[in-house]
């Protein structure tokens, strides 16, 4: 099979860690299925589906979320439901991190969450809906010019439990201790190649190394802001072990954190990379999970659930 321009170095890196390299490389050249989420802050799932069906838009529920759908239609963005903020177009794997907090929300519906890298607000608005507009989400982004899009989405989706702030999270000064933190870190975005091929044309390993340095700094600061007993979800949309297992392994070595096993009923999750280059990762890292694009026809993703022990428990 002929692949579009995948750099040789990229192939070598990932052929070594993926279960089926041919299927993996082939999947990268296929467009992503279109997906959306029903915004339960403003609409009812069944009514939205009925109306979409009325337009001839077919939507299939994914097995692992009641609100998430895939559709063959490219018209969802031109519907009344999209105008009204009843649906939000969002890639499937990007819906995973907020779902990791579902049990926490159930236990504490009024919790305080930090969304450390929030733009454009997809996960923020999803979390806001999961929290049913209760509690508080502090949505941060370091990029000033991306705050506008967060604001736009919060307004459109009817979020009333979110405040937007603008800090470099590494140097975010606050006395607050968060019950939960989402750190969907800036990354080399290899997992988004299916929707943006430019990622490959500017791909280089140096960027991976420098980004992992940034991520380690971010995860360290975020962990400090997590209350004892709190949960942090670390995620990226990239395949590079340096930015995934490597970052989590770093935090494990520098703190008392514990990883929790990830299960998503109905979604095939893959194991983590055990060792990379000259480094063998701590065994706890294996509790994190990867999503490969050729397994469930999605983008690529990495996600880890990191618990801060309660005081006196470490």
């Amino acid at each position: 099979m002929v692949h579009f321009n995948i750099p040789q170095r990229f192939r070598e890196r990932y052929a070594a860690i993926v279960d089926d390299p041919e299927a993996f490389f082939a999947s990268l050249s296929r467009p992503l299925p279109k997906a959306f989420r029903v915004n339960t802050l403003k609409a009812d799932v069944d009514k939205v589906l009925e109306r979409l069906q009325g337009y001839g838009i077919e939507a299939m529920n994914v097995a692992w979320s009641d609100d998430a759908f895939v559709t063959p239609s490219d018209k969802t963005g031109a519907t009344l439901e999209h105008f009204m903020g009843h649906i939000y177009i969002q890639e499937l794997v990007s819906m995973l991190p907020p779902l990791m907090l579902k049990e926490e929300i159930k236990a504490n519906p009024d919790m305080t969450v930090l969304d450390a890298c929030a733009a454009p607000g997809s996960k923020t608005t999803q979390l806001s809906a999961l929290m049913k507009n209760r509690g508080l989400i502090v949505a941060n982004d370091a990029a000033f010019n991306r705050l506008k899009i967060i604001k736009h989405n919060l307004e459109k989706l009817g979020c009333m439990n979110v405040a937007v702030v603008n800090h470099d999270i590494r140097f975010f000064k606050t006395d607050m201790q968060f019950d939960c933190i989402l750190l969907d870190a800036p990354c080399s975005s290899e997992g988004t190649i299916r929707k943006n091929r430019e990622v490959l044309s500017r791909w280089n390993e140096k960027e991976i190394i420098s980004t992992s340095g940034l991520q380690k700094h971010m995860i360290t600061r975020c962990y400090e802001m997590l209350r004892p007993g709190g949960l942090m979800v670390y995620s990226t949309c990239t395949f590079a072990p340096e930015e995934n297992e490597g970052v989590v392994d770093y935090l494990l070595s520098k703190s008392d954190c514990k990883l929790e096993r990830i299960e998503v009923k109905g979604l095939k999750l893959s194991g983590t990379v055990k060792a990379w280059k000259d480094r063998t990762f701590a065994s706890d890292v294996a509790k994190a999970a990867r999503v490969w694009p050729h397994h469930s026809d999605t983008g690529g993703f990495f996600v880890a659930k990191i618990r801060k022990p309660k005081e006196g428990m470490s």
Binding site: L147, K151, E155, A163
Partner: peptide
């Protein structure tokens, strides 16, 4: 309470 005590960039719902 948060928006009253902290410097925010934007809030919702207008």
């Amino acid at each position: 309470v948060f928006c009253n005590r902290n410097n925010i960039m934007s809030a919702s719902l207008p």
